[in-house]
Nucleic acid binder design. Structure first.
Length: 994
DNA sequence: GGTGTGTGGTAGC
DNA sequence: AATCGCTACCACACACC
């Protein structure tokens, strides 16, 4: 198809060329183009004479299937901690019978035993009745008889038994949630440990670590020798005497024993040494996880705490502390995990259309604030106003508890403003590790409960659980009761497992209503709205704020206020909008889709888009793009620093891309630039202040996962956007329209290969990139050659593994760091700003194009020319003589042509282009020149240059063929381009010095 | 009508 | 010292055919 289209295109060009035109100059007599046939012969000879190794011979005898199969046997299975997937429907019945945690309708509260022991700081609100609180705190807890008043001996005995079984239950839960169901090494087997006072890590974390590693935990000291070890960070004088006969150790004993996977001698961590009152000097070693990553070079003044975007470790240290990054990363992981599980459980079907569903929307209450607060025994969640934030002034509040909210404090507010509302606000640090642990516990409880047919991850602390009601005994009351019971059970289990984190749950039969019910339930409550008449639904949602609807944010509320409600109320409710709007009005003011969506939401109904997650969860959760956004701490001085930064971003992205086994056909750069009037340094330290954003996307002819290629494209886009380096405040790179590599192998077989491939029509298996990369070095190279020979799309090798190249261009581009040094001399890397700013936008744009192209062109051309000892391609200062005379049309879409050209190059990269094709192509270019479409030619030249560069750097193409292409670009295209530029008087001059 | 690009809104704490 | 303002995805407006 490529050839036909190309031929079509070219013939169009030649037919349009009927008007008298200067014929294109014939190639110089000594051009390699003249040698097309003979050179091809030479290549063929060279190939056939190359000696084959035994290995290569063997490989060449295999058919495609066997070859790919052979490679794939080298796959290394990726290991990954996984949550247990929800029990298969078939297993449900059995589970339900055995599992004591299934709550049937109308649950009878079990006879009360001792209260479960949440930390004193956490209290349940009255919605959790005291009978609720006092029931057995874990499903497997020993059930003991009612307690008689004053029977303390019995009380403590029960309590001990209870705690023991609770620890057992927790150990299992932790294993399932955090370790893929496998046991942890029983490091603390036979140890009974008591924790005294405040410690780091805190009591809850130590408790967890001890029980998962086989130890038992004492919540109180009773009787001598009932504990084997006491953990404490420091001891009062009195305690020192009291504990002097115990093995008192620092918390590091726990953490370091775990790190070492064996119980370390406690004496090394003893807090009390033989001599009375003398404390063994503990060099407080932070836990291993807190140590700075070893690759961060400690050299010249590098400070792990300071953020410097020019340092190589910046991305990593920034991401490590960015809550938003963590949230996004967690979400992506959860989605990936879901897909994995969903595919594994192939029997899992989305609910049949029209099935009766109960949707449970489960969400921790002010998640970060609660978890962080529970890690610090000084604070009481229900009394102290608490928030999680990094700093004290202009740092953002990630989460605040309900006490703080009662002062008007909100998430996202700066701490300084929050303190004005609530002077006693306490700021707690993040505890990302514990957030993750609690999240896993939540998901484990949801999955392990067996209640739900599907558990859809929304975020780290939030999930939507789906229960099919169809099989249930009928009667709405019963369904409602069941949902109530399930909800209660889940909330209690999560509270216990997390040592005091509360979840709220909203339950209804649509996603929207479940979400609204959740909002209503918060904090620490539940709201079940199953099987309702439309009237009661309307009554229910009437009073809820419009903001609570999914997809309705500040902007949409503003629009509604302005155009529909005319600012009648400060905080409009769903009822307000419902009474004052119609479908038509909504659609006209908010857009078609948004209007329709909102209209349905106002009646509590899901729309097509938001219910897609139920109909086709796999498609809904499948990854379609991948990106990095940095809009904090961006302060650069020169374009070179930005180039390096872009390199690192692309490196990061392609690493992820590789892990996902995907390639991208398109990259988008988004630049965030300081507003002209905004101060250089905004109020927030290293913040971005007020900014404008600009974006630009570009496509690759062949989807890629090469960092170098992507990076080059992004740098080029950056220059086009023309942001002065010092004004850059944020940068984002997105890889769009991702495709699985394994899906591409089959598609990519070139049509013309079908003719000579006798196996035409038979599918051959996808080549596994991991497997390919796992091949031993020599074999890998031979396989690569073999694959290339067969035109099987071969996976690119990761840059780190690339052997030393023999291509100067490749070396040149490989040396990211050094590159700027060499280029700086010959070509200004940024255009003079003042000069540029005074030009008309179109001209600016064109010059930037030109600039970028020449930069690229020179990179591939210079090495060959320098071998000849001649000059390099150079760019004059781009002084347009008559800028006002030129009106460039906005860029045409050379996209199709660009693709054609790339595939043309791909197919002829070894043997060189055919002279006839080139002649036709010349005519096409001449036509373009005649029409004054210089920019179009520029774009084509740029495409060719960059694609040749790609081959030069990343494929084992024959240098001779590539050289012919480069010659063509230099000797015929660039002069055409120059001529065209001169003729159209565009002011763009391209000089080419030899 | 379709397709592609750039911009903007929203979600999670 | 401060401070860690991410990221996936959809929808829209507009341009071009």
């Amino acid at each position: 198809m490529d050839y036909e289209e190309l031929a079509q295109l070219l013939s169009d060009a030649s037919s349009l060329d009927a008007s008298p035109q200067e014929p294109p100059p014939p190639p110089p007599p000594d051009s390699p183009l003249r040698l097309y046939d003979s050179s091809r012969g030479a290549i063929a000879r060279e190939r056939s004479q190359r000696p084959f190794s035994q290995q290569q011979r063997l490989l060449s005898t295999l058919d495609d299937d066997s070859l790919v199969g052979l490679v794939n046997t080298f796959d290394r299975p990726t290991q990954r901690a996984r949550l247990r997937r929800p029990a298969a429907p078939a297993d449900d019945a059995a589970d339900a019978e055995d599992d004591p945690c299934i709550v049937t309708s109308s649950p009878e509260p079990p006879s009360s035993v001792v209260p479960s022991t949440p930390p004193a700081s956490s209290r349940l609100s009255e919605s959790d009745s005291s009978s609720d609180r006092s029931r057995s705190s874990s499903p497997t807890a020993a059930r003991v008889g009612p307690l008689k008043f004053g029977d303390y001996a019995q009380y403590f005995s029960d309590k001990t038994a209870h705690q023991h079984s609770r620890d057992e239950y927790m150990r299992k839960l932790y294993q399932d949630a955090l370790n893929g169901g496998r046991e942890y090494p029983p490091i603390f087997k036979d140890c009974t440990i008591y924790i005294n006072g405040r410690t780091f890590p805190d009591r809850l974390q130590l408790h967890q670590k001890i029980i998962i590693h086989g130890g038992s935990f004492k919540h109180f000291l009773s009787g001598k020798k009932s504990v084997t070890h006491i953990v404490a960070s420091n001891l009062t004088a009195k305690k020192r005497i009291e504990f002097q006969n115990y093995k008192v150790v620092a918390p590091a004993w726990i953490t370091e024993s775990i790190a070492a996977s064996k119980r370390l001698p406690w004496q090394d961590y003893a807090l009390i040494t033989g001599e009375y009152g003398q404390q063994k000097l503990q060099i407080a070693r932070p836990p291993a996880a807190a140590l700075p990553a070893p690759e961060q070079q400690p050299a010249d003044g590098f400070d792990a705490n300071s953020l410097d975007c020019k340092q190589p470790g910046f991305l990593q240290s920034f991401f490590a502390k960015s809550r938003l990054h963590q949230l996004s990363a967690w979400k992506a992981d959860l989605r990936a995990l879901f897909c994995e599980k969903y595919v594994e459980g192939a029997h899992l079907q989305p609910p049949p259309k029209g099935a009766r569903l109960a949707i449970f929307h489960v969400d921790f209450d002010c998640f970060f604030a609660t978890v962080s607060a529970l890690s610090d025994a000084r604070y009481d969640l229900s009394r102290d106003p608490l928030a999680v934030a990094h700093g004290n002034n202009s740092s953002e509040i990630a989460s605040c508890n309900y006490v703080a909210r009662s002062f008007g404090v909100k998430n996202g507010m700066w701490v300084r403003s929050a303190r004005r509302l609530c002077p006693n606000l306490i700021c707690l640090p993040y505890n990302f590790e514990q957030y993750e642990v609690n999240s896993k516990l939540l998901y484990q409880i949801l999955a392990g409960s067996g209640f739900f047919q599907m558990i859809l991850p929304i975020s780290i602390d939030e999930a939507i659980c789906v229960k099919y009601l169809d099989g249930l005994p009928d009667g709405d009351a019963s369904a409602h009761q069941q949902c109530e019971a399930i909800t209660r059970q889940i909330r209690r289990d999560v509270f216990d497992a997390t040592n005091g984190c509360t979840v709220s749950i909203g339950c209804s039969n649509s996603l929207v209503l479940a979400r609204l019910a959740l909002k209503k339930a918060k904090p620490n409550g539940q709201c079940v709205m199953a099987s309702l008449e439309q009237d009661s639904i309307d009554a229910f949602i009437e009073e809820l704020p419009l903001r609570d609807l999914p997809g309705v944010g500040a902007t949409i509320v503003d629009k509604v206020q302005q155009h529909i409600l005319f600012e009648q109320t400060a905080e409009p409710t769903i009822g307000d909008l419902k009474r004052n709007s119609s479908l038509q009005l909504l659609a006209s003011k908010l857009g078609t889709k948004t209007g329709h969506k909102l209209h349905l939401f106002l009646s509590g109904k899901d729309d097509e888009e938001n219910s897609r997650v139920l109909r086709d969860p796999l498609d809904y959760f499948a990854r379609k793009s991948i990106s990095v956004d940095i809009n904090y701490a961006i302060r650069f001085d020169t374009i070179h620093e930005i180039d390096e930064f872009i390199d690192r971003i692309c490196e990061h992205l392609t690493t992820k891309l590789g892990e996902l086994d995907m390639v991208t056909p398109q990259v988008t750069l988004k630049v965030t630039r300081r507003c002209e009037h905004a101060p250089i340094e905004p109020a927030k330290y290293l913040g971005s202040g007020e900014c404008d954003t600009f974006s630009r996307s570009s496509r690759f002819g062949v989807p890629t996962c090469e960092a170098g290629l992507i990076s080059t494209e992004v740098k080029s886009s950056f220059r086009m956007l023309g942001c002065p380096p010092k004004d850059l405040r944020g940068i984002a790179v997105q890889l769009n329209k991702l495709e699985k590599v394994s899906d591409r192998v089959c598609q990519l077989r070139l049509p013309f290969r079908e003719q000579d491939a006798s196996s035409a029509g038979s599918r051959f298996p996808a080549l596994n990139v991991n497997a390919f990369n796992s091949l031993p070095g020599a074999l890998k190279e031979d396989v690569r050659t073999e694959l290339l020979k067969r035109k099987i799309n071969l996976p690119p090798s990761p840059p780190s593994k690339r052997s030393a190249s023999n291509s100067p261009v490749k070396d040149y581009w490989g040396r990211h760091g050094k590159r700027t040094e060499t280029l700086k001399q010959e070509m200004p890397s940024t255009l003079d700003e003042d000069f540029m700013n005074h030009l008309p936008t179109q001209i600016q744009r064109e010059i930037k194009w030109d600039h970028a192209i020449v930069k690229k062109a020179s990179s591939s051309v210079r090495n060959r020319l320098s071998r000849k000892g001649t000059g390099v391609l150079n760019l004059s200062k781009n002084r347009p003589s008559k800028p006002e005379a030129v009106k460039f049309q906005s860029l045409e879409r050379p996209l199709g042509i660009s693709r054609l050209i790339k595939s043309w190059i791909d197919d002829t990269i070894d043997n060189g282009p055919h002279i006839d094709d080139l002649n036709l192509f010349d005519k096409y270019l001449t036509k373009l020149a005649a029409k004054g479409k210089t920019h179009h030619i520029l774009k084509i030249a740029r495409t060719m240059s960059s694609h040749l560069e790609y081959h030069s750097s990343f494929t084992k193409s024959n240098p001779q063929g590539r050289q012919e292409w480069e010659e063509y670009l230099l000797i015929r295209m660039i002069p055409t381009l120059t001529a065209s530029a001169a003729k159209s008087d565009s002011g763009v001059q391209v000089t080419f010095d030899l």
